[in-house]
Design a protein around this nucleic acid. Structure first.
Length: 889
RNA sequence: GCCGACGUGGCGGAACUGGCAUACGCGCUCGACUCAAAAUCGAGUGACCGUAAGGUCAUGCGGGUUCAACUCCCGCCGUCGGCACCA
């Protein structure tokens, strides 16, 4: 700023202003929501609660500050806004820190939360801290246990065996703890194995169909598609094959594995497969089981046991992603056994291959190489027969046995069935129903719906999570811990012994207990719950954080749910957001809540990456700490800068180079507000109106700009398009700058534009807006509410405010202004004129000029005459008065 | 690999429903102010040709639809997110 100004008025110093207003807002209770107030419409605004990883990074600002702007925007519309916050504080990093630094997970977590709470406060965000929740508090996780017991009673929780990645030294490993292509343990380097453990599941699949229904919620289409694909509903049939009798089959006495000598004769055993293409059943030339399939040991011929055994072990080392890749070369081994195709009695070989997954369908497939790409590749590689059973009209009957060059996947309406016994000649689209009917009549199969979605495995072999509230009794088996004995507390002293394995297992005081049923000795479950459980219902707990008879007070839930707007990272598009929907439906079914969908509207913002374009992480050393930039430019500038850098759902690499522009913008608003008559020493034009404008025209132009800005900005806030919202405010600021020091400055139109400017700025940059609002209020002769100046003594004040002045009130309690449509109205429009789609001229015409007149005017323009080169227009396109395009040849 | 998104000046991005490509900001250049510098203010700034008027080209690449395509369709390439024990 120039020297004269410097001496006349205060500089804009955000760090002097911001803490003062943050404190003042807290005193005013601006953040605290009265959940029982039903005079105003409610607006439940939820943002994904942070994991207390250590300290706040710029990504947290990116998530939270635009959300706060939205909260403030809705408050100005008279809504009762609830914006809670908490900490998602169970999880692996706390345990990793514990192992590494010999610090208790709780101590580490608590210290991080304390630090992050302080840092969050510097945002100036209006979080309601009264309703804060911390998921590792027993007061929170007891309700995880309570809910688990309700689910258990309702049959929504069950126990089953499931493989985990296992290190002989460190126990179960999380995916991120398995490293390298050889899949070794991150801590000790040992080769990771698979081990089957009894674990707890939640029955998410029960809700598969309901989860596919998004009617009634306004979620972005990409998210709906991703969830739909994740659930992966497919209609098809289950087909029963039977194992073939054959002298080459191993008999009952020579079980190759020796593990299940139960005397079953493999011949005649049922082998169920799921297929989406029952119409191709006659083309099944072999079967493939997943390496983990229960019948593999029984079906393996002794000659092949070594090969099969090796293959099964190797398959266990692969990740599912590797196994599903359609790109890499197919692998597999023959078991030595055969199965019988139920429709034609054909004997086909049974193979195992890793591209068949145990967790999908029945873990076994019928392979139809002619009509499935993966089966085709497999058959090609291992020399298995390929038989066409579906043909398009371009294939004659004589050609149906010509070898295929690639799998024929198409399923057109003109396709017909070939090589299909009694079905040959039938239109292919009828084959599905026809073959299913035949199978059903013979008891060899039935129509079936299959989902890719699996039940949710919630057991974790870890300390830092919610203990699963069951005990194991020799007499009574699995016994739920009675509700009145909740919470099952995590022991506070644990010894990690430098190992990664769950220390609960070796904690005798925790493990040894008595059976609630018989009073005899029993063991506690030592597994804890997946932390996604915590985040699957936390927005309910916010509503009644100290309610002691249930997770949530149903009367408050009824009023406040569903959440009106949820904001959070796109990386949660599937898992968290699907679990949350599942939980809501399940909780509704056990009678805890009313709504079946948790979040009415969803917005997934993008991720802020490190300066290197990579995800921010401590190990990469690219984490951006906001504190320094906030102390230099102020919270308002950082908030605005994050909103301005691009569409909110896009994210991007962090680079602070442009923040100076935001800072300049705020400074210009500051001086325009406080010193409208100042002139710019460096600008010879400063203080003079544009040559073609008088005061009246300038005031009209300013009012028009202000109200047009308001119209745009109102929509942009509501639609979370903050980047263009800021751009529009900058444009208005540029116009104010143009008129600063002129006869317009300080007049009625100027004051109106400035007032609108501050109101529009208030949600996004709340401190400077409040400060200027307050100072202009004093200038208007209003007195602060409560008789005390809302700012410190650092600014000279011109004595007492006059008595009888209107009471000052926070800008954040003002009503959002209304657009003056008359002021914003345009009466002229500049119409671009094209010849053959190329811009040749522009004409300014009155709004509503008839097309015929516009056309006459346009065709007379010298530039257009020249461009037409005396050719006759074929057609003149009027794009609704927005553009004229003259087509010539 | 599968699912989803994205690709526009030197950089972040705008163009919302097919209708003026490059709003707004950064950076850069020049100028004003200053003894000077910083800061501030003003002007300019897609590329190429041209003194200019003006013209041609340009939204990842290749095709297509249309009077008109950043936008719609087909096929590629690249980047990012998710893939069920990171949260």
């Amino acid at each position: 700023m120039s020297e004269p100004e410097h001496s006349r008025i205060d500089r804009y110093e955000p760090t002097a202003i911001e803490p003062r207003w943050q404190q003042r807002w807290a005193e005013l209770g601006l953040h605290d929501t009265d959940l029982t107030d039903d005079d105003r419409p409610k607006f439940y605004l939820l943002t994904m609660y942070p994991y207390p990883s250590g300290s706040l990074h710029i990504g947290h600002w990116y998530i939270m500050t635009p959300t706060d702007a939205l909260a403030r925007f809705h408050r100005m519309h008279g809504e009762n806004v609830f914006l809670p916050i908490g900490f998602d504080s169970f999880g692996l990093p706390a345990e990793n820190a514990a192992i590494k630094n010999k610090i208790h997970p709780r101590a580490w977590t608590s210290a991080n939360i304390d630090k992050m709470r302080r840092q969050v406060r510097t945002m100036g965000a209006t979080f309601d801290w009264q309703s804060e929740i911390v998921t590792c508090d027993p007061d929170y996780y007891r309700w995880n246990q309570w809910i688990f017991l309700k689910f258990l009673a309702a049959g929504l929780a069950y126990r089953a065996k499931s493989p985990v990645d296992w290190c002989p030294n460190d126990g179960t490993l999380a995916r991120e703890q398995v490293e390298g292509t050889d899949r070794h343990c991150w801590r000790c380097g040992a080769r990771v194995e698979k081990r089957d453990l009894d674990q707890w599941y939640l029955r998410t699949t029960k809700y598969a169909d309901e989860l596919l229904d998004f009617s009634g919620i306004e979620w972005p289409e990409p998210i709906r598609i991703m969830q739909t694909n994740w659930i992966g509903r497919s209609e098809g049939a289950e087909v029963v094959f039977t194992t073939a009798a054959d002298e080459a089959q191993p008999g009952a006495d020579e079980e190759p594995s020796g593990r299940e000598p139960d005397g079953d004769v493999p011949a005649g055993r049922e082998l169920r497969v799921f297929t989406t293409r029952p119409d191709t059943l006659y083309g099944a030339t072999f079967m493939v089981l997943s390496p983990e399939h229960a019948l593999v040991p029984k079906l393996t011929h002794p000659d092949r046991a070594a090969e099969v055994g090796a293959y099964v072990t190797e398959a266990g080392r692969q990740t599912e992603i590797e196994r599903m890749s359609t790109e890499r070369e197919k692998t597999g081994v023959f078991t030595g056994s055969y199965a019988v195709n139920p429709v034609n009695g054909e004997r086909i070989p049974i193979w195992i291959a890793d591209y068949v997954l145990a967790g999908y369908g029945t873990g076994a497939i019928m392979a139809v190489p002619a009509h499935d790409e993966r089966d085709f590749d497999f058959a090609r590689k291992f020399g298995l027969p390929i038989r066409r059973v579906i043909a398009g009209p371009e294939v004659s009957d004589a050609e149906v046995s010509v070898p295929l060059e690639e799998a024929y996947i198409a399923h057109g309406t003109t396709d017909r069935m070939v090589n299909s016994g009694t079905h040959t000649g039938l239109p292919a689209k009828e084959g599905f129903a026809s073959i299913v009917a035949m199978l059903e009549s013979q008891g060899k199969g039935a129509a079936s719906v299959n989902f890719r979605l699996r039940d949710w495995l919630i057991s974790r072999q870890r300390y830092w999570g919610t203990p699963i509230p069951v005990v194991y009794c020799e007499m009574d088996g699995i016994v739920p811990v009675p509700e009145d004995q909740l919470p099952v507390r995590l022991p506070e002293t644990v010894d990690y012994e430098g190992r990664g394995e769950n220390p609960l297992k070796s904690d005798a005081a925790f493990v040894n207990t008595t059976c609630p049923k018989c009073g005899g000795p029993a063991r506690r479950e030592t597994d804890t719950m997946d932390t996604f459980i915590d985040s699957s219902w936390y927005w309910y707990r916010y509503l009644s954080p100290s309610y002691s008879s249930a997770p949530v007070d149903r009367s408050i839930e009824a009023r406040w749910c569903p959440v009106d707007q949820y904001t959070g990272g796109a990386e949660h598009a599937v898992m968290h957001l699907l679990y949350a929907r599942f939980f809501t439906k399940a909780l509704a079914d056990v009678g805890l809540v009313h709504e079946r969908e948790p979040f009415k509207r969803l917005f997934n913002q993008g991720q802020i990456l490190g300066a290197d374009g990579e995800r921010m992480s401590k190990s990469r050393g690219n984490v951006q700490d906001p504190d320094e930039i906030v102390s230099r430019y102020g919270a308002d500038a950082v908030r605005l800068f994050l909103m301005f850098m691009g569409p909110w759902d896009q994210g991007g690499p962090w680079s602070p180079t442009g923040i100076g522009g935001i800072s300049r913008f705020l400074n210009r608003v500051w001086y325009a507000a406080l010193d409208p008559h100042g002139v710019e020493a460096g600008d010879p034009e400063s203080g003079a109106l544009p040559a073609n404008q008088d005061v009246a025209a300038a005031e009209k132009a300013l009012r028009k700009a202000a109200h047009k800005t308001l119209r745009a900005v109102s929509v942009e806030y509501a639609e979370l398009r903050f980047n263009t919202m800021v751009a529009h405010l900058m444009e208005l600021s540029n116009l104010l700058q143009r008129y600063r020091g002129t006869a317009v400055a300080g007049g009625a139109a100027w004051n109106e534009a400035m007032r609108l400017m501050l109101l529009m700025l208030a949600p996004a940059a709340p401190h400077i807006a409040e400060e200027l609002w307050s100072r202009l209020a004093e200038a208007r002769g209003e007195v602060p509410r409560g008789g005390e100046a809302p700012r410190g003594g650092d600014v000279p004040r011109g004595g007492e405010a006059p008595r009888g002045g209107e009471a000052w009130s926070s800008i954040h309690t003002q009503a959002w202004p209304a657009v003056d449509e008359a002021a914003a109205a345009e009466n002229e429009r500049e119409v671009p004129v094209q010849v053959n789609g190329k811009l040749r001229d522009r004409v300014t015409v009155p709004i509503g000029l008839p097309e015929a007149e516009l056309e006459r005017l346009v065709l007379a323009r010298p530039k257009i005459v020249a461009a037409l080169e005396s050719k006759t227009p074929l057609k003149v396109i009027h794009a609704g008065g927005k553009l004229v395009n003259i087509v010539v040849r």
